[in-house]
Design a protein around this nucleic acid. Structure first.
Lengths: 146, 146
DNA sequence: TTGTTAAATGGTAATAATTACGATAATCGG
DNA sequence: CCGATTATCGTAATTATTACCATTTAACAA
C-alpha cells in the first residue's frame, strides 16, 4: 500500500470514519491519478462506477466531500469543471501552486505573496484565507502547443 | 441612465451586439446589485424571470456569458456557486480583490504579488495568468458575527 | 418610414452534475 | 461473535445549464 494511502487512512481513523472497500478504492485511484494533478470529479465518478459497477454516485460524491473536509484532497474549479487532487503532503507548510490549464498538473511554489502591506489595506475586515495560483501550460503541454 | 450602463452599452455596440430590452434590463440589474459585489447567477436568473415573466433561461445565461467575454462582468465561483459582478471599471489597470465570503462584497487591492522570483521557479512553463484573492468578512459582516 | 438582414429571444425540452431518501449491509470496538 | 453506528446501494429527484428552432426584433440604409 502506498504511503500516501496509509496517511489518508490514518486521518480517516483518527476522525472516526470507517475504512471501507469503497473508500480504499477511491484513495488508491486518487493517489494513482491525482497526485500533483487536478482530476475532474466526474471522471472519478465514471471510473469508479466502471470499475465497481454498483457503486453509487452518492458514495463517490459524499466521500470526496469528506476527504476534502479532512484535508485529504484539495478541491478546485478548473474552467467550469469541479476537480480535486490528492493533498500534496499532510502537515506540509503553507504554499501555493502553478496549475497547468491543459492537463491539470501542479507545481508547488515556494513563496506566499501575502504581506502585511496588503492586509493593512483591509482595515475592519476579518481575513480568513487567501488564494494565489498561477495558470499556464506546463513544460510538456507547452511543447505540444508549439 | 447610470454611466456604468452607458459604458457597457458602448462596449456592446462597438462589438456589434444589439442593444435589446433584455440586455438593458440585465445591465441595470447588474449595476444596481452587483457593483463591487459578486452575485449568484441563479439569483440573476430568478430575478429576471420574475420581473420579466417570459424571459428565457437561455437569454439570461447567454447574455451573462457574452458580458463576461466582453469584460463587462467578471465571473467567479464562490464556494460552489457561479457568481458574477459588474466590472469595476473599464480599462482599469490590473488589480486583485478582497472578497467577503458572507455577502460577496469586494474591495480592490493595490498590489499585484506576481514577481520575477516567483515565475523564475517555473522554467519551461508558459505562464498565461494568475489569481490572487483574499477572503474573509467585510467590516459589516464581521460586526454581525461578533 | 419602411424594408431587409442578421442577430436575439422565447418556449420547450434535453442534458449533466449533484443530492435526497430509506432500506440493507458492513465496519469496528468490546 | 455481537450490537451499535455508520456507510452503501439503488432509484429517483433536483438544480443548473444548454440545445433547438420558429418567431421577433434591432440596426441600418434607401
Amino acid at each position: 500500500m502506498p504511503s500516501a494511502v496509509k496517511e489518508a487512512t490514518s486521518v480517516l481513523k483518527s476522525n472516526h470514519f470507517k475504512i471501507t472497500k469503497q473508500r480504499m478504492a477511491m484513495l488508491e485511484f486518487l493517489v494513482n491519478t491525482a497526485t500533483k494533478k487536478f482530476v475532474e470529479v466526474t471522471s472519478i465518478d465514471n471510473f469508479m462506477r466502471q470499475t465497481f459497477p454498483n457503486m453509487s454516485h452518492n458514495t463517490i460524491y459524499r466521500n470526496i466531500s469528506e476527504f476534502a473536509e479532512l484535508g485529504i484532497v484539495e478541491r478546485q474549479v478548473q474552467g467550469d469543471r469541479a476537480s480535486v487532487k490528492f493533498q500534496c503532503d499532510f502537515e506540509q507548510e503553507h504554499h501555493h501552486h502553478f496549475i497547468c490549464s491543459n492537463c491539470g498538473k501542479v507545481i508547488e511554489l515556494k513563496d506566499c505573496p501575502l504581506s502585511k502591506e496588503i492586509t493593512d489595506q483591509l482595515g475592519g475586515c476579518k481575513v480568513t484565507g487567501h488564494l494565489f495560483q498561477i495558470y499556464g501550460l506546463c513544460p510538456e503541454c507547452a511543447q505540444l502547443n508549439e
